[in-house]
Amino acid sequence: MDIERLHYMANQIAANFAVQGEDSAIAATAAHITSFWDPRMKSQIIKSERSGLSPIAAAAVASLG
């Protein structure tokens, strides 16, 4: 799948959790991706080059991998 689209989705999730504070937002973003994303989307974002991710999204994805 288009990796830019997956990065956009992850960043959007992270942006909406950001108000909870960094640690909590990272955990919430990771939990959200785990709960709602199909395995191919998860493995693709985990394998991707993550410079397009916001810090919270990047940390969340790192915690999945």
Partner: peptide, 17 residues
């Protein structure tokens, strides 16, 4: 594991998966 949502299905169709 959860599956694809409608819009994800369309995206995934375009990459052949």
């Amino acid at each position: 594991d959860p599956g694809l949502r409608i819009n994800n299905m369309i995206d995934a169709a375009l990459d052949g998966s």
